[in-house]
Amino acid sequence: MKHMIQLLKEIGLPYAYDHFSEGNAPEPPFICYLYPQSDNFSADGVAYLKKNQVSLELYTDQKAVTLEQQVEAILDKNHIFYNKSEVYIDSEKMYEVLYQFTLEVDYEK
């Protein structure tokens, strides 16, 4: 979680886990992220290496190629392999660019 928060701060956009509460969403661009499932490695019946799959959703009110490139540069700089997809949400009049990747779980100490 700590590594994810560092990435989000480096991107520099408003962010929330899963969604902003109703009425509190900032104007685009902003990011929502979530951990839809784990991708753990097991050994001897134990989760030896714990990883979370991450969905990082970039929302913009218009196509923002430069902003996407900035997000991708930060992911690249941190050696994060990602897959990217995009959809236009007509009801919201926004683009959602989805980055999916896996991060090792880093527990706070």
Rank of each mutant, 00 (worst) to 15 (best):
I89M: 02
L8H: 04
Q70W: 00
K84F: 09
Y15P: 01
N40T: 07
D39H: 07
V71T: 02
P36V: 01
I74E: 10
E27D: 13
Y35P: 10
P14R: 11
E22F: 02
V71Y: 11
A47T: 12
Q37F: 12
K93G: 01
Y95S: 06
G12Y: 02
Y107F: 10
Y48D: 14
N83F: 09
P14M: 04
Y82V: 08
E86P: 00
L8M: 00
M4I: 00
D106G: 14
G23F: 02
F101A: 08
Y82L: 12
P29T: 07
I80H: 13
K2S: 07
S42H: 12
M1H: 09
E72F: 09
A25E: 09
A73T: 12
Q62Y: 11
Q6V: 02
L7V: 01
F101C: 12
E68F: 12
K50V: 11
F41G: 06
Y95H: 09
K51Q: 13
E108R: 07
G23P: 01
L56M: 15
H19M: 00
S38K: 11
Y35V: 08
S21P: 00
V54Y: 09
Y99Q: 11
V54N: 04
M94V: 05
Q100H: 02
Q70I: 10
A64F: 01
I80K: 13
K63E: 09
I80A: 15
A25Q: 10
L34N: 12
L8N: 03
T102W: 01
S55P: 11
I5C: 06
S38E: 15
Y17Q: 04
E104R: 14
V54C: 13
Y15H: 10
L103N: 03
I74Q: 15
V46Q: 10
V46S: 04
G45A: 14
E92P: 03
L56H: 07
D61P: 03
L103P: 03
L75R: 10
E68M: 11
E108L: 07
E104H: 07
V97F: 08
Y17R: 03
E72G: 08
N78Y: 03
N52G: 08
T102S: 03
M4R: 00
L7K: 05
V65Y: 15
E108K: 06
K2Q: 09
K109T: 04
L34R: 15
S55R: 05
V105R: 15
T102F: 01
K2W: 08
Q69W: 13
Q70H: 04
Q70T: 14
L58Q: 08
A25L: 02
E57Q: 08
F20K: 00
I31F: 05
K77R: 11
N78E: 11
A25M: 07
Y107I: 11
P26V: 05
G45Y: 09
S21T: 05
K50E: 13
L75M: 14
V71S: 12
S55W: 07
M1E: 04
V65L: 13
E57F: 05
Y33R: 00
A64W: 14
Q100W: 01
L56P: 15
F81D: 05
A25F: 05
A43T: 11
H19Q: 00
L98H: 05
P29Y: 06
E86F: 12
D44M: 06
Q69T: 15
H19W: 00
E96P: 02
M1Y: 04
T102H: 00
S55Y: 01
E104F: 13
A43L: 14
F41Y: 12
L8P: 02
S38T: 13
Y99P: 12
D39T: 06
A47N: 14
E72Q: 13
E68Y: 09
N40A: 07
Q100V: 09
M1D: 06
